[in-house]
């Protein structure tokens, strides 16, 4: 084993918040969460809606602080906004008044990278995702898939060692999703950051991840961890034909179904239609 610190470490993390100012009960979103993401590892967080997966990403990004416990990035406690990680949100969050290339250059601009190098690095990644020719288009002139590609390369262009992704392909149609999953795998293999990837899509989680962490219903705790040993690079388009896929999928689905079942279990006396 190497002696280097894990890229991300959660140690007995709790997160409670009050939904409204006068709400009677605080909500416990996360309970005793401990896990690590190793350098270069692609880790997916799956679980029922509202189980605190996205909160985990916000904790690593420093947008919110844990109520108890410790969140570390490269061995250092996260306190305040963490600009050393990349964050790709569910909405593309492109700036509507900036062209595609202007959006992709943003992080480099904030880091004081000189303009010619900014242009070169942005163009290189824009090329990888096939958007050359659209550099000077504004976000409203691009399709949903193009905007999503833009938001991914915008984050990868400044080379952070950890990238957080919150259901990045959620709003896309099924075909575009698979194509973008394959593109993400390629992009990830170029620089191999650690990825924390929140998703509801178990196929997507298996296709992309080295490890999958299953969360329980709120308050989110870790139910189980799965190692995904499918060889890389993976054929995303035929991932379900890969040996070992079905067993893993069935095991994951059984876990998730148990959680969904628990959330929607009929109360005593309630009639089941």
């Amino acid at each position: 084993m190497s002696t280097s610190a894990p890229a991300v470490r959660f140690q007995s993390v709790y997160k409670a918040f009050i939904a409204r100012e006068r709400a009677a009960q605080p909500i416990l979103a996360l309970e005793d969460i401990s896990f690590v993401a190793n350098p270069g590892e692609f880790v997916s967080l799956v679980g029922p809606s509202g189980c605190g997966k996205s909160t985990c990403l916000n904790l690593v990004a420093g947008l919110t602080a844990p109520s108890a416990g410790l969140v570390e990035h490269q061995g250092a406690r996260v306190s305040g906004v963490n600009t050393k990680v990349g964050y790709i949100t569910q909405d593309d969050n492109l700036l509507p008044w900036r062209s595609l290339v202007g959006n992709v250059e943003l992080g480099l601009e904030f880091r004081g990278v000189p303009a010619p190098e900014r242009r070169r690095r942005a163009r290189e990644l824009i090329d990888v995702v096939g958007l050359i020719g659209f550099e000077h288009h504004y976000p409203h002139e691009l399709s949903g898939g193009m905007r999503k590609r833009a938001s991914i390369v915008r984050t990868l262009v400044y080379d952070t060692d950890v990238v957080l992704m919150d259901e990045p392909f959620g709003p896309l149609d099924a075909q575009t999703r698979v194509i973008l999953q394959a593109e993400l795998q390629n992009l990830w293999q170029r620089s191999r950051p650690s990825v924390l990837f929140v998703t509801h899509d178990l196929v997507e989680a298996i296709a992309l991840s080295d490890r999958i962490i299953v969360f329980t219903n709120r308050p989110g705790t870790i139910k189980r961890e799965y190692r995904v040993d499918l060889p890389r690079p993976r054929d995303i388009f035929h991932i379900h034909e890969t040996p070992g896929f079905s067993d893993l999928y069935d095991a994951l689905w059984a876990d998730i179904r148990a959680e969904i079942g628990a959330a929607h279990a009929p109360v005593a006396g309630e009639r089941i239609a």
């Binding site: 990004a61 969050n93 904030f110 984050t155 400044y158």
Partner: peptide
């Protein structure tokens, strides 16, 4: 969220 994303970007 737009503001948050840009702050995390640095």
């Amino acid at each position: 969220s737009l503001v948050d994303v840009v702050r995390v970007m640095g």
